[in-house]
Design a protein around this nucleic acid. Sequence first.
RNA 1: GCGGGCGUAGCUCAGGUGGUUAGAGCGUCAGGCUGUGGCCCUGAAGGGCGCGGGUUCGAAUCCCGCCGCUCGCCCCA
Length: 437
Amino acid sequence: MALKFKAPRGTKDILPDEIAEWRLVEESFRKKCAQYGYREIRTPVFEDLGLFERTAGETSDIVQKQMFAVMPYGLRQQFEDERWVLRPEGTAPVARALLEHGLLQQLPLVKVFYIAPIFRYERPQAGRLRQHHQCGIEAIGSLSPLLDVEVIALGFDFLMSVGANGFVINLNSIGCLNENCRPRYRQVLIEYLKSREAELCEDCQRRLQTNPLRVLDCKEEGCQAVVKDAPISVDFLCQDCSEHFETVKKGLDELGIRYELNGRLVRGLDYYTRTVFEFVHPKLGAQSTVLGGGRYDGLIAELGGALTPGVGFGCGIERVLLVRQANSQTKLEDTTVDAFIAIASPVAENLAQKLLYELRAAGIRTDRDYLGRSLKAQMRYADKLGARFVLILGEDEMRDGFVTVRDMQKSEQWREPFDKIVSTIANALSERILTKT
RNA sequence: GCGGGCGUAGCUCAGGUGGUUAGAGCGUCAGGCUGUGGCCCUGAAGGGCGCGGGUUCGAAUCCCGCCGCUCGCCCCA
């Protein structure tokens, strides 16, 4: 079909049949966050471009080529200096909001979570969209390695709770900004890479100048061979970072959360320090990271706040849904209504409408026929909507003052007086709920 | 931005070497049971065969271009 308009490339409509899945994931996440003492925060979908240049890094791919500009369309020439962009990641906006409203002054440790759309201008592929949705957490104010453990544990618990098991946790520490830590490692790495520069791909030869750490996760064969023997950051951690990392590992061991050390794990955003982690799932194809995050001890200071450490993660909801599918989690189905009013004769119209109103007021999800179709068609429709009860109103019912109630599950039906109908249905439905749980 | 695959009804797909009004299953609607769902049977509606151009007496089918989708590279959730 050659329709005039389609959803923009890399975006997806989430249709009514899919909503149950989304709700399950979102509500499970909210519940899990509440258990861990995190509160929800919501920030605008667009922010000042500078916020991301500052935090993610000017050389990061996100800032260089993946952001959508936002401006009043008709006046775009005049708005060149108003540099707004759709949020390309979740952490910086949250940090900005906490700083702006002084929340970091009100509590020594602030723990928040968000569920939000994220936008990146990329070529779509399996598990990668231009608009996707992330749920994430940020814990700001403590240097404790056990907080890193908590953050990873929350991610672990959450994914398990929605049936997204089967992932592997990759763990690494990329050190801090102390000159005898990451900078020293960086120097060693550069020297090593330079000694084998000819074997590196074009991109990596460029990265050698801009962001040498990212040569480590290049997938080119030649680079892999070089990286295999490259020095690893954990061997160059300063005393503090080393102890921190040991405690993180021990903490995870204590909880029985398994992980794999991955010295080549470096993340694409500049603000990360010390602990970094990715939850990857083997069944996900090329875009295999379901959840990723780490510590960002310099971020708040970078935004003009006091030197305040933090740690958090972001988790791609679409990818969680893909994992659930790969795990063949049975697809959730939800019914549209509990009751349906079938109108077998026009003389019942008025009463039907009144009854409909009363049932709804009693909290019962109810609908009726508006198309004047045959009773058979109305029954079929009611069945399709998943109605447990169909209330039939026709000439007989109007004459003798009752409603024919059909229990669609049991295939039984009976006569119910007008004045009893709402309470009867309400009771029957609440019993169902009780026996179900 | 660069590669590979694909583009026929709402959905999933058939349509050897080009040949009369383009098919199936599911879904939708109607009927079989004129007041009753899920099964079964019958029938109907619904497609300018992604768009544009070319070859040909004739193209969904061959050629070219464009667009879109999809899977990879890059990077990430």
